[in-house]
Design a protein around this nucleic acid. Sequence first.
RNA 1: CGGGGCGUAGCGCAGUUUGGUAGCGCGCACGGUUCGGGUCCGUGAGGUCUAGGGUUCAAAUCCCUACGCCCCGACCA
Length: 478
Amino acid sequence: MMADFLTAQSEDFSKWYNEIVQKADLADYSPVRGCMVIKPYGYTLWERIRDELDRRFKETGHVNAYFPLFIPMSFLQKEAEHVEGFSPELAVVTHGGGEELEEPLVVRPTSETIIGHMYAKWIQSYRDLPVLINQWANVVRWELRTRLFLRTTEFLWQEGHTAHATETEAQEETLRMLDVYTDFAVNEAAIPVLPGRKSESEKFAGAVASYTIEAMMKDGKALQSGTSHFLGQNFAKAFDIKFLDEGNVQQYAWTTSWGVSTRMVGAVVMTHGDDQGLVLPPRLAPIQAVIVPIWRKDQERAAVLEAARALYQQLAPTVRVKLDDRDELSPGWKFNDWEMRGVPLRIEVGPRDVAQQTVMLARRDMPGREGKTSVAQAGLPQSVAEMLATVQQAIYQKALAFRESHIADVQTYDELKEAIQTGFARAWWAGGREDEARLKEETKATVRCIPMEQPGGSGPCVLTGKEAQEIAIFGRAY
RNA sequence: CGGGGCGUAGCGCAGUUUGGUAGCGCGCACGGUUCGGGUCCGUGAGGUCUAGGGUUCAAAUCCCUACGCCCCGACCA
């Protein structure tokens, strides 16, 4: 059954995305260009993302803190590449309290600089290290072109900033957080991601090395869904983050930073969504199961509602469940509505179910009759939990299968060009900055990442023909 | 910043060519009906037609100017 209230993905994926984000009440446009209002349903989804990430940060020894929104302009200028990278997209405050400020304040685009400044004060000894701090914050980047969740002028994210005594330790931290992101993406968001290193021209402004988790959206385009940066001593030198080591020698600290943003919401939407609307992974879904009561006559209504309420009470302690007892809407309407909103599981309760002490479970990821099973009301929390776990696994496998069938191993530049029309290309790569620029110019594709998992050996670079030690993933990106 | 599209009821749109009482669908409110895949009927509320200026007896409609938004591209989490 085709939805006529939503543009089909195959017709115009971009239009589908814009429509579903608004129709499912995730977000709305604001009066300020490029900014969005995150509506309660979308914000709850973000809260789920936030909670699961935050739990993992705590488990790996990090603590939260909060640094200011405003950063003195001069701070950004202390790291040459950093200022060069971010200058074009800064929002700058020049006036306050009716007077022109002595020094303009930048609305943070990211917080390496102000945190670096503070770390310089806090770190004196190797005994003060490591510093493992994360903050949940909003940041502002004056992007030329914005899209809800994928690229907004203001967005929410977390940024972890750590300082370490040794290079090795900082590198380990960088990769540890990449693992945390991968684990989150796979196990919570059900998004298969390719963890890897960013190429020279794609890395973070001021980083020695950047790592990323790259996801493939349903239109075959890549979405950078999280990044972890090894900053070396670049920021330590710019902000004078020094400590005395065990041998009483002054050393610069080694720092990292890593972030995941509200863009992750867009990743969830574009990884799992279909022509009926959102498909949310059970572990992140604001509502995991919705109970839809069905009746014909008044006496049925009373019995069905009573049963539905009892089921709600039974499920509420362990499942994020909602009872849709709205009187004025037909069951069919509700089915479509909750499917559009991506609720993973629907629990239908009608007169037949009341009589038989059963309910009908309908999976969001399997449309129509195929996804429906009748189960006993007794032990429903268990059945629902199992079904939610099944759906979580199923949508991950589906997304993984989609990605794998849209990655092509290619040997030639022509094959690469063809592959990136529908997905990713994987090939030997030994190109530099200029080769990447040429690639982008000619194909609109970029090196998405150099995957952590490498086949070993060597082969001819897909673009330059030079002997290459590594394979890279190529694709068009958001 | 380049290219394209659009600003008319909460939303989606028609009306603009050829100036003459501002409409349709959905939604919303009320009453009834219906309910296992977007029920049906009736009644009703809701508009400085993006803004400013001009032409005209008369402007949503013609002319000028400004602003805003969306899409595609360049830049980017």
